[in-house]
Design a protein around this nucleic acid. Structure first.
Length: 429
RNA sequence: GCGAUCGUAGCUCAGUUGGUUAGAGCGCCGGUUUGUGGUACCGGAGGUCGGGGGUUCAAGACCCCUCGAUCGCCCCA
């Protein structure tokens, strides 16, 4: 006997009620994206490493440490997708999707990041994703955010979740803001936390969402993006916010909401909850007008978001799996064949059904009752004659009887017709 | 990569300042009762107490190492 291998760290086996919640998120997303006329796309789960390293900017831990990369037999470096956007951009460019612009796309599936697992964070995780490619209009941002808001409402989790919104401005605004931030924080470098002193060199924007209390007052005094916005960038953001107001989407301004990657412009947003510990972002995205160029394409404006299916599922009111419409209890093994025939009929009629025919015959019925099934059909032998009983409320029983048709007569007929019906059923089984 | 907490039956967990054959509930299997039924009762299977080393007359408990999990930090596309 060999030892059972264990699952890879950070992967999960999803089962039962949790799997139902997961499926519910995906099904709801599919329904909503059709309402908003987003078209479905499927991309490979792995790409040339280049696809991600170029779009992410070669920099940072993200590329060097947090991707699942490997060499294939031909020596090419491949990577399991850590996000959807880069692969979608690659497909957009290599498959000629420019002809569909402006293109609304939706997809979902597994993603992989080499990280330490914690609440709502896994190495293989799953996201739903929506992108709107080829539109530089603020209306595109509004469309996308309205769909996200609508989705959260349909999932019934909108109440505990708030939309935080910010603008990073256009390229010039953003750069001017960055310079001002570096200047500000450099003056108080010694007062910053160690982590933020490090961020000052690597990624100064990230100081703004530092969790360290020592950084708080310095962040409060830091220069705001609003002071650096060009007139165009200000108008763009104004159009987005007024569009959201018109669509009835509630939002709050979060001046500290930033993006780590260079290709982000203008709108950045996150739907945040306080119910998931440190991993409170439930859906996030923004405008990435600079991405296509990094993959060698023509400048193409785009905006998108993604949301973790696991996190959304955790926020759902966990409901148990549905009880069966009918449980068929075989209390005597001699009646297996007619039971199987009846089971097929019940299911063909659209009722969910299960067969209970193992273990102690005396306890089979009790198990059926315990399962919470809407109806129970029990088959047993009374002397040498087959006998059956049904349990359930009148409406459910009537559906069951319709499903069974003439297979079992009404109980009052049992003495005369029952035996013939059962043998006929077993003969055709 | 770093930190904290935790690993005892299939699941949820007890297990006293270290003390003799390691327990309960649920689940599973079988039986008794009931006899038309979600009851109650009896019994059974199932544990090298995550793994390895150490301290001790004696370790599930204490110490070290290791593996794993959870939560957090870093990072967050």
């Amino acid at each position: 006997m060999s030892k059972t291998p264990q699952a890879i760290r950070g992967t999960q086996d999803i089962f039962g009620a949790e799997a139902e919640a997961f499926a519910h998120v995906v099904a709801t997303f599919e329904r909503i994206r059709k309402l908003y006329r987003f078209r479905r796309a499927e991309m490979p789960v792995f790409e040339k490493t280049e696809v991600f390293s170029r779009s992410l900017g070669e920099t940072t831990d993200v590329v060097s440490k947090e991707m699942y990369s490997f060499e294939d037999r031909g020596g090419d470096s491949l990577t399991l997708r850590p996000e959807f956007t880069a692969g979608i951009a690659r497909a957009f460019l290599t498959d000629g999707w420019q002809q569909h612009v402006p293109l609304k796309l939706a997809t979902h599936g597994p993603l992989f990041r080499y990280e330490r697992p914690q609440k709502g964070r896994y190495r293989q995780f799953h996201q739903i994703d929506a992108e709107l490619i080829g539109s530089a209009e603020p209306q595109a941002d509004v469309e996308l955010l309205t769909m996200a808001d609508h989705l959260l409402q349909e999932l019934g989790i909108a109440d505990g979740v708030t939309l935080q919104l910010n603008t990073l401005g256009d390229a010039e605004s953003r750069e001017a803001w960055r310079v001002a931030l570096v200047e500000h924080f450099s003056e108080h470098r010694a007062d910053l936390s160690e982590d933020s002193q490090d961020r000052l060199d690597r990624n100064p924007f990230r100081i703004l969402d530092s969790k360290d209390s020592r950084d708080r007052t310095l962040v409060d005094d830091a220069p705001r993006i609003d002071s650096f916005l060009s007139a165009e960038a200000r108008d763009f953001f104004g159009a987005v916010t007024s569009g959201l107001d018109a669509a009835g989407v509630a939002w709050v301004r979060n001046q500290s909401l930033v993006r780590g990657l260079d290709y982000y412009r203008h709108t950045a947003f996150e739907f945040v909850t306080d119910r998931l510990g440190a991993q409170g972002t439930v859906l996030g995205g923004g405008r990435y007008d600079g991405l296509m160029e990094s993959l060698g394409g023509a400048p193409t404006p785009a905006v998108g978001w993604a949301a973790g299916i696991e996190r959304l599922a955790m926020l759902l009111d966990m409901q148990d799996e549905d009880a069966a419409d009918c449980i068929l209890v075989v209390e005597d093994d001699a009646l297996m064949a007619p039971a199987i025939a009846a089971l097929r009929r019940i299911r063909t009629a659209g009722l969910s059904a299960d067969l209970l025919a193992s273990g102690s015959p005396r306890k089979r019925y009790d198990k059926a009752v315990k399962s919470g099934a809407r109806t129970i059909l029990a088959l047993s032998m009374r002397g040498s004659a087959p006998d059956y009983r049904m349990k359930g409320d009148a409406a459910d029983l009537s559906r069951l009887e319709d499903a069974l048709g003439d297979m079992f007569k009404a109980r009052s007929d049992m003495g005369t017709d029952m035996g013939a019906d059962l043998s006929a059923a077993s003969g055709t089984a």
